[in-house]
Design a protein around this nucleic acid. Structure first.
Lengths: 211, 211
DNA sequence: TTTCGAACAGAACATATGTGCCGCGTGGGA
DNA sequence: TCCCACGCGGCACATATGTTCTGTTCGAAA
């Protein structure tokens, strides 16, 4: 049960993704041959068979360009969307995961580029409780975050307030030694924290509330 | 400049959608022929040329199964997503469009089924102003609505308050002759309106805020 | 009526494309 | 050492598939 992919197989997989993203239909074997600088169609065929065995693609035999991309577990993949892992919950009293990659996603959210933009490494969290109500974020909402340790002024960030052990979502304005954290609800007053007391944990990309 | 599609052309387009949704790769001309009960490949070819002229598909000549689905305006379509038209703005003082179909969308938003669900006829509106802040909806947010003239208790609806000429987004609880409209921010008090003074204009499906 | 073009039928044609077969290195195990 | 699976190269082959050509039908316009 070999789950390992050879360099050539990873290259083919990458080429498949790019080609489909570009053309909206799968490449032929000879397209792959040229795109990956492979010497023979039979080599492509050989490696496609391996990829199919390992559950990364599915092929309909005898049909041109009949390659479907799977995710390595035999699951169908969606096109034109970004898979964003839902890593867990976010509440006032718990810090965000610092290394999102290390967590097993409990769920996956498909997002279009309309929402996700071209950012990479995004992850999502479910909001638990109403502690972020001042950020116009309710219990049950989903927040999409881009992992970041530094933020630009004006970014909406997820900040960990060290001494209060609290996560908050606010607009970020560094002002010398202190930081102004402005609620997104413009009728509310900003709070000020010592710069050393604020840890930037990520940048807010979007929030989604479904009913 | 014929924008009209014949029944056969609509059938082919439908078949294309279904086939691609099912297989993740486009059908061959003969697949279309069989799937649509068309007598000859040349008829398929003929109608595909028409569809291409009208901007519903794009084809790469001489390449098998090289059909891309477009949206009728020559724009690329995404797969596994729902196209939701952005019909305009929503503000406190303007009613929602009653017949969304009749408006030309100023923009199109791609949504995955994760967000849109399986509902049909959805449309989106951009929120202008902060008048919906009590519904945790900010200036610039996008609201996704399902057209509906009647709502179930507990639905979050877009309601037109007749005498105040005002649009509001609230949870809907009919209570006999009056209606309780509960803000989504649970710390705020509900308002009560005469049932005749409340017009249900649609059901809120989701809200999206992108940064 | 005639004319003309849109839509279609049927078949032949050219080629794009998946598949199979034979063979060659190479490296590890018996 | 021999043997064999693995990964690969090269090529021929069958066919899946897009294209094209000739004709037919039908309805509207002349």
């Amino acid at each position: 049960m070999a789950d390992e992919l050879s360099a050539k197989q990873r290259g083919i997989l990458q080429f498949l993704e790019d080609f489909i993203a570009k053309h909206d239909y799968p490449p032929s074997i000879r397209d792959i041959q040229n795109g990956c600088d492979i010497s023979s169609t039979s080599v492509v065929d050989y490696n496609l068979k391996r990829l199919e065995e390992k559950g990364f693609i599915r092929r309909d035999r005898e049909v041109s360009r009949a390659i479907e991309l799977l995710d390595g577990q035999g699951e169908r993949r969606r096109r034109g969307t970004v898979q964003v892992p839902v890593l867990g919950k976010i509440a006032a009293g718990i810090p965000l995961p610092v290394h999102p990659d290390q967590l097993a996603p409990e769920d996956v959210l498909d997002l279009t580029e309309d929402i996700a933009g071209n950012r990479a490494g995004l992850y999502a969290l479910r909001v638990q409780g109403t502690s972020m109500i001042d950020a116009l974020i309710n219990d049950g909402d989903i927040v999409i975050l881009e992992p970041k340790q530094v933020a630009d002024p004006g970014d909406v960030i997820a900040a960990w307030i060290v001494d209060r052990e609290e996560t908050t979502l606010k607009k970020y304005y560094p002002e010398g030694a202190r930081v102004r954290l402005q609620p997104m609800n413009s009728t509310m007053e900003p709070i000020y924290e010592d710069a050393a007391n604020v840890e930037v944990q990520g940048k807010l990309v979007a929030t989604i509330r479904a009913f």
